[in-house]
Nucleic acid binder design. Structure first.
Length: 118
DNA sequence: AACGTGACACAGC
DNA sequence: AGCTGTGCCACGT
């Protein structure tokens, strides 16, 4: 139903595609993805999109701007997200990513979007 | 067709 | 310095 089949779900699908590009051992924020899609303030939509994301989408690599694993509530296991991140090499403490800035993965940069080239 | 919800972000208090 | 309120945009009912 609310899969990629939705014609209006272009935004929805774009989020999946972006998150899918996140390398293991890296994390990104909803705002970064939303901003990359063109709507920095629609970070909520990013989470909503991941809500229907398939397992091929690294939704567990997406955290909020503070590095908090806020999305763990939508996972089958409340600690599954944290455990999985640590398994990929991302240190997590109390459902928070340590050195978040260091592990932060920006789609705008990784995907080659010349934003600051000016 | 309209209202409510939602895994956020930012400004104000 | 932490909490509340509002804004954002799309999906769900």
């Amino acid at each position: 139903m609310y899969e990629q089949g939705s014609a209006s779900g272009d935004f929805f699908r774009s989020v999946h595609d972006t998150v899918r590009e996140i390398p293991a051992g890296r994390v990104t924020s909803y705002g970064a993805i939303a901003k990359y899609l063109g709507s920095a303030r629609s970070s909520r939509m990013v989470g909503w999109a991941l809500n229907g994301a398939s397992e091929q989408v690294a939704a567990h690599r997406v955290v909020n701007r503070l590095g908090e694993l806020t999305g763990r509530t939508a996972f089958p296991g409340p600690d599954m997200m944290q455990d999985r991140l640590q398994a990929e090499g991302v240190p997590v403490e109390n459902h928070r990513v340590l050195n978040f800035e260091k592990y932060f993965w920006d789609p705008s940069i990784a995907l080659g979007d010349e934003v600051e080239l000016a």
